[in-house]
Amino acid sequence: MTEDPYAAHRSLLFTVAYEMLGSATDAEDVLQESWLRWSAVDHSQVRDPRSYLVRVVTRQALNRLRTVSRRREDYVGEWLPEPLLTSPDVAEDVELAESVSIAMLTVLETLGPTERAVFVLREVFELPYGEIAEVIGKSAAAVRQIGRRARERVAARQPRVRVSRSEQQAVVERFLAALETGQLQELLAVMAPDVVLIADGGGVVAAALAPLHGSEPVAAVLARANRVAAFSTAAVWLNGAPAGRIELDGEASAVSLVVEDGLITRIYAVRNPQKLAWLDVPAELAR
């Protein structure tokens, strides 16, 4: 019996929706809506199921993105993407791992819905401009222009240097070891002077409402957390990269790092428990 195309391409479709939305929960809702539309179609009339399904999911994700964009404007504090537990295999596809990183998804939040759709479909999934034009209802020429603007905006905000997986892993391990001890000097030694800490508590748990700048203030906050709560750390793979899981008095946090020249330049700490449902079972990603 031939496998249903929706089931065969589900990992790809989830990845498209997740990169569009930065939320696994919203991505799952989009996939459910897309499956209902797929189940109502005469499959014998669909020449290229993969392309057709990507178009359906993208349209649904665009609709959802316009809705959640308004919701995020009222979010308490900084909004960060939902972290995903992933297997180390995801990192083997460097482009995929970079595209689903917390850093990249945070950058994509600065794009408008249409820009984000064009960037994801073209730069990550390499869809032809003509197909993207069908999805968003614009000409291929307009899509090219939108894509160029999106690339420029993303490039201006991306980390300057791409580090190897082994270097990322080594820095993550140093950082987690420093957190375990709570020693200021050890934390300072692993962070760049201009490091930025961005925390997402969503108004549900305690977290800084604005980014914290500078190694000394960031180290002081992290060292204090170690002293005031039952504290443990574990190295995990999040969004295709080595990262950390921290337990504070039994409450989990997911920590992703941006590393440049052997030092941490950005720390993304997701504390909102509503965003941590995907930390126990690895997500299936594909492109």
Rank of each mutant, 00 (worst) to 15 (best):
V118N: 14
T86A: 04
V120Y: 02
V120H: 01
P83R: 15
T114H: 06
P128F: 09
G112P: 06
A97S: 13
M104C: 03
D93A: 03
I102G: 11
E123K: 00
E115H: 08
P88D: 15
F119V: 02
E126W: 11
T86G: 07
L84G: 03
P88L: 11
I102P: 09
L84T: 02
T86M: 05
E92V: 14
S99N: 07
V90H: 13
T106I: 00
L108G: 08
A117M: 09
E109R: 01
I102M: 06
E95C: 02
L84R: 02
L84N: 02
P113H: 11
V124P: 01
V124E: 03
E98K: 04
S101K: 14
S87T: 15
R116I: 12
T106W: 00
V94F: 10
A117G: 07
G112V: 12
V124K: 01
V120D: 03
L121R: 10
V120E: 03
E126N: 12
L127P: 03
V90Q: 07
S87L: 13
V94P: 10
E115V: 06
P88C: 10
P88I: 10
V124A: 04
E115A: 14
A103N: 12
E126L: 12
A103S: 10
S101C: 10
L111M: 14
T114G: 05
A91Q: 14
E126M: 10
T114Q: 13
P83C: 12
P83H: 11
D89V: 07
E123Q: 01
E92Q: 14
E92R: 14
E109C: 00
I102R: 05
P128T: 05
V90K: 06
V90G: 10
E95I: 03
E123R: 00
T110P: 06
L85R: 09
M104N: 06
L111V: 06
T86Y: 03
T106K: 01
L85T: 04
E98D: 10
L96F: 14
V118E: 11
V120I: 10
T106V: 00
P113Q: 09
V107P: 04
L85Q: 04
F119L: 04
E92T: 15
I102D: 14
E126Y: 09
Y129E: 13
V90L: 15
E109K: 00
V107C: 01
I102H: 06
L121G: 06
T110S: 09
P113E: 10
A117E: 15
L96E: 15
